[in-house]
């Protein structure tokens, strides 16, 4: 519960942050809201040599509608997303997810970009990004969400690369995110997200594997005219969820089906 020693510097811009990361070397880490990183530091599970604090990078705190996409800056806090009229109008599912992240203190501090860079299997936004084919914009390139999340806590980011923005397609239609958890402020044991698009339903699952999952089998069954119940029964197809002290893999597979059906019913 006492972090190991580390160096610390503050960045005021993307350029400064990247330069500081480069200078500090491969053991450096970015700290944004710190809501996942600080507990890891305190448990000494993470012992970076240097923290680059990007909380002063104001240029990354924004929500911009552009054409049929919504561009969200990496330093936008969960509480901002939950309250944003633009998000509520153009991608209300993101606002719904943001409102369910952690507790009020965590939402006031945690950032969208932090969730993407941290890539926890139980993170909520990665599910939305993967199911909607969002694009992650870094200081140097654009990466499709499905390529960005590689494994548990592992992304396509280089050591000195900074998440700057996530570009979501706008989706104002019926939607729902159900986060099954024991305590209101917990991570999801399993989460199921559904979004009606012009082209049909998109379905995503949280915490049923090392990364977020797009439930393609459910989507195609719905496309073929299956009932919600029939379609949702395919939600566990191909999943290899973790077994842990919260839930067995079997139970997670079962929840994936139940929650997917409920989300569809509640969204429609």
């Amino acid at each position: 519960m006492i972090p190991a020693a580390f160096q610390y510097s503050k960045a005021g811009s993307v350029r400064e942050a990247v330069a500081q990361l480069r200078e500090a070397g491969p053991e450096a880490k970015v700290i944004a809201g710190g809501q996942s990183l600080i507990p890891l530091l305190r448990l000494r599970l993470s012992q970076p040599s240097h923290l680059v604090d990007v909380n002063g990078v104001r240029e990354l705190d924004y929500v911009h509608p552009e054409g049929d996409h919504l561009r969200v800056g990496a330093m936008t806090r969960h509480s901002t997303l939950a309250r944003s009229e633009l998000v509520q109008r153009h991608l209300p599912l993101l606002a719904e997810m943001a409102a369910q992240v952690g507790d009020p203190q965590i939402r006031a501090r945690g950032t969208l970009g932090g969730v993407f860079a941290h890539a926890d299997a139980a993170g909520d936004y990665p599910t939305l990004a993967v199911m909607l084919d969002a694009t992650i914009v870094t200081d140097r390139r654009r990466v499709a969400a499905r390529d960005f999340f590689q494994h548990l806590f592992t992304t396509a980011l280089a050591e000195d690369e900074l998440v700057c923005e996530v570009v979501f397609p706008m989706a104002p239609g019926p939607h729902r995110y159900i986060k099954f958890r024991r305590r209101l402020y917990d991570w999801a044991i399993v989460g199921a997200a559904v979004q009606k698009m012009d082209s049909g339903w998109r379905v995503g699952l949280t915490h049923v594997g090392p990364t977020a999952v797009r439930a393609a089998a459910v989507e195609s069954r719905l496309q073929a005219g299956a009932s919600f119940t029939e379609a949702a029964s395919a939600a566990a197809d191909g999943l290899e969820p973790p077994s842990d002290v919260r839930a067995s893999a079997d139970y997670r597979r079962h929840l994936a089906q139940v929650l997917t059906r409920r989300a569809l019913e509640q969204a429609a």
Partner: peptide, 16 residues
Amino acid sequence: LVTGTMLDYLVPTMNE
């Protein structure tokens, strides 16, 4: 010990 943190040892809150 498997439930070594408050993440895994589930002390409920007023919400539950």
